[in-house]
């Protein structure tokens, strides 16, 4: 069950402006970063220079820079500046491969696989991120434990009277992530219970994996 098309890779609120994070979807390493103006980006997590993970680097305005040697890339993925050669006009061929990226339903989505032509992302209702939950289990097992049907990369279930919408991400063949969102205006009093449920789900799913 390979996941292709739009795949949720992070909760929007967990990627603050001016920050980056590494994520893995279907084994592909992706850097998700948000420039200081608030736009999200999803790129291959690899600097063309020495292969360093871009997610170890840092965001400067609308550029992201590699931690190793400071090579800076603009929002199109094109290298604009090499600190060791400050006067060099950088060849336009030095660039990082980009994923199609979208932001909807409180999540950041990347279009898999790399190089695929992104279809229009569906407009999801505005949702509030609760948490991302990482589980050591294949996505199919996680979905089975939830006992819900998946529509694309989304699952809708109700727990404790709250209509949860969950974005599902196959990290690898053995690991999965759930990006759990709530309707806006969900009372704060309901949330600790939902966090209990998340942690119990992870324990339950992983205990089953350990037995299997």
């Amino acid at each position: 069950m390979t996941q292709t098309g739009w795949v949720p890779v992070a909760l929007s609120k967990m990627i603050e402006p001016g920050t980056s994070a590494g994520v893995v979807a279907e084994g592909a390493e992706i850097v998700v970063w948000r420039d200081t103006s608030g736009t999200a980006h999803a790129w291959e997590d690899r600097c063309p220079h020495r292969g360093m993970k871009m997610s170890f680097g840092f965001v400067r305005g609308d550029h992201i820079a590699c931690l190793y040697h400071g090579w800076e890339y603009d929002e199109s993925g094109t290298c604009q500046y090499i600190p060791a050669h400050p006067d060099l006009e950088v060849p336009k061929s030095i660039c990082v491969a980009r994923y199609g990226v979208a932001e909807s339903g409180g999540m950041i989505w990347a279009h898999l696989p790399l190089g695929s032509e992104p279809a229009a992302a569906s407009e999801l209702p505005v949702m509030e991120g609760l948490r991302s939950l990482y589980l050591d289990a294949p996505l199919a097992d996680v979905i089975a434990a939830l006992g819900a049907e998946r529509t694309g990369s989304m699952i809708a279930i109700e727990h404790a009277g709250v209509a949860l919408r969950i974005g599902v991400q196959a990290v690898s063949e053995r690991r999965s992530a759930l990006h759990i969102t709530l309707p806006e205006g969900t009372p704060d009093s309901a949330k600790p219970m939902l966090l209990d449920w998340c942690e119990a789900l992870r324990r339950q799913v992983e205990a089953r994996e350990a037995v299997a």
């Binding site: 967990m14 994070a21 893995v24 990482y134």
Partner: peptide
């Protein structure tokens, strides 16, 4: 933790806290 190959991918709250 990256010094012993434990990446930060799975810990979004820890990333924000570290910041």
């Amino acid at each position: 933790s990256r010094d012993f190959n434990l990446d930060h991918d799975e810990f979004p709250q820890l990333r924000l806290w570290a910041r």
